[in-house]
Design a binder for these strands. Structure first.
Lengths: 274, 274
DNA sequence: TAGTGGTCTAGACCACACG
DNA sequence: GTGTGGTCTAGACCACTAC
């Protein structure tokens, strides 16, 4: 337990206390709550930010267990309940996962069950299965204006472009065109992609230390052009789902733009509203 | 405050206590927690269920305020924290909405801001605007097998079918084909639909007491047939988004099947992954 | 048996809205 | 000022997992 260097704890507490007005002596009494100030934010939000920093800095790596709630409470000099609320939100955002009796773990794209966190394409019949991937291309190039805008970089900045086809049950089903931030993903090659078995995001996480946290998708229906049709083994003009995804890491920094074209004759895009 | 009949409170407490083994005297001491039993569920889940019942029964109607946390705590004889956790989950499911300083309110499809809770179609440029609706048809008929299966009724049972076109910025954009459970929606006519200004779900809620809580959607790309093309003012064969939605009320009972065909030349379907 | 997350309580104070 | 939700604390016990 509590194998954390006191120095770190000290830093953390300082960060926490620079919240509102000078916090009264942080003894055992309640009301270390925030004071009125223009930049007010609840304690648990600050704790959440501190934990997120540790996640981002790699202090706790994907798949690993983070310290127990009691340890974190001691480290940040707050009550267990406050840490709990911070972790609750992180768990709601899928940054960590709680497992009763075991601990709280940093989520990972390697995990057995959660491979379809970002791919919502479901077969009409049968279970979701992870298909084979055929990499068509993987090269560095200068970002076109549109991509640069989405990645929040300048036109002409370096990006990595990948094109691939995904096969489900032996059928070409998805044609992906992917742009990645050049600064991350320096050594990425077609070979690496081809050798890798499993989700692409797991590779990014393991090899490049870039974790996809959330994404937004814009979906349209489009007609397959002849080149696309050939790659997907459909007729030209076949209606396809066009899914334009932007993925974000920590700090809501965009790192990937992906345009997928889905064949939806034997699969559909699943979405739940609430 | 606390204008609740004691009889109800009594009922509630009884319901709560039939949880685990015989709860020891429910005094001020802690540990009214559940005992080991095959059908264990946390206290706050039971409270949540009780509150949900009151919502469903109409004790608190959409738009109204529910009793304060303190009142509910007294009513159910639990601590405020337990009620809070129950309400937290209900708020996460969009059944109620908390407003600091005011109270907790039953959500409604009438609300100003939340009109696009179920319609994820966003224009390429400009703000989401609520379009005009043209009802093509509204009639009772016997449920086809496919619809019956989705609505969890028998083939041939009574359903109401609606067909309509939605216009965004004057352009036909959505063609909806809707099937509603016949048992609910008895007096629904094309006239009522046409007269109604605002979201259809608001009409269902106000006139038929049926509240849509959540929905699932299956999305594909399809080609417009000639009839559809005419109604949507596009060429036959134009790729359209096919959105098959099943909507649920309380108790996860399906009450609506809706097949929408979306023109996605100037709009897109927006989705967020996390 | 020990450690972890999960539940529950009781009480305090803060931030916000409204009369 | 009063009432509401929001935050924070401290301590207790329960349920699950592993050793």
């Amino acid at each position: 337990m509590s194998s954390l260097p006191p120095s770190l704890a000290g830093t953390a507490v300082a960060a926490v206390q620079d919240n509102g007005a000078a916090a009264p002596g942080a003894g055992t009494q309640p009301s270390s709550a925030a004071a009125a100030s223009p930049t007010f934010s609840p304690l648990y939000q600050q704790i959440k930010a501190l934990i997120t920093q540790s996640l981002q800095s790699g202090e706790w790596k994907p798949g690993e267990m983070i310290p127990s709630e009691m340890d974190l409470a001691a480290r940040y000099k707050v009550s267990q309940g406050t840490v709990r609320k911070a972790i609750d939100e992180l768990a709601a955002e899928n940054l960590v996962a709680r497992r009763q009796g075991k601990g709280t773990f940093v989520t990972t794209h390697h995990e057995d069950g959660v491979k379809f966190r970002f791919l919502r394409l479901v077969p009409d019949e049968g279970e979701p299965h992870y298909g084979a991937s055929q990499v068509l291309e993987c090269k560095r190039l200068r970002a076109p204006a549109e991509i640069a805008r989405l990645l929040d970089i300048r036109t002409g900045d370096s990006v990595v472009q990948i094109r691939r086809v995904l096969f489900f049950s032996g059928e070409a089903t998805v044609l992906d065109e992917i742009w990645l931030l050049g600064t991350n993903f320096k050594g990425l090659t077609a070979e690496k992609l081809t050798e890798w078995k499993g989700p692409m995001y797991a590779l990014f996480e393991a090899e490049f230390g870039t974790r996809m946290i959330r994404a937004t998708e814009k979906i349209r229906a489009v007609a397959a052009d002849s080149a696309t049709a050939a790659l997907l083994s459909v007729d030209a003009g076949t209606p396809l789902l066009s899914v334009e995804r932007v993925s974000f890491t920590y700090g809501d920094r965009p790192v990937e733009v992906r345009r997928g074209l889905y064949v939806t004759t034997r699969h559909y895009y699943q979405n739940d509203l609430s």
